[in-house]
């Protein structure tokens, strides 16, 4: 998914978002259909975004949804039901699994990190 290539730069360029994630030190799995990605976070900064497949992936929590649903989520103006991670959970599209503590303790941070997958103002 193309926006994932932009994620590290977009998040790390947002000083306030990085500050809000200042206690986050984890690696989480993002599954886009069949394709897994590992996203490593330290002190609120994205350290790496790596595309699978992986032999022995280690992660704290996983966000798994069909590609078509992530593509809706990533639109600049997502339709109702695709506009938020919890909206995807409610429609039983997104499954959040694993050790949820880092995710829930930093829920607003992770929601805004994932919202960085959308086209940002000023970008063509």
């Amino acid at each position: 998914m193309e926006p994932l290539d932009q994620l590290l730069q977009r998040v790390n360029a947002n000083a306030r978002l990085v500050w809000r994630g200042r206690y986050v030190d984890t690696t989480f799995l993002l599954e886009v259909g069949e394709v897994p990605w590992l996203i490593k976070v330290n002190l609120g900064r994205i350290v790496s975004v790596t595309r699978g497949p992986f032999v022995m992936p280690a992660w704290s929590f996983a966000l798994r949804a069909p590609r078509a649903d992530w593509e809706q989520f990533c639109l600049a103006n997502p339709p109702p039901g695709f506009h938020d991670l919890m909206a995807l959970v409610k429609r039983r599209s997104l499954r959040i699994e694993g050790n949820l503590q880092p995710f829930m303790a930093n829920l607003l941070y992770f929601k805004d990190v994932m919202a960085m997958l959308r086209p940002q103002a000023g970008e063509l």
Binding site: D84, M86, M104, L107, K111
Partner: peptide
């Protein structure tokens, strides 16, 4: 407080 806000923010 933060998790409650996080739960409802998308609403």
């Amino acid at each position: 407080g933060e998790v409650c806000a996080g739960i409802v923010s998308g609403l």
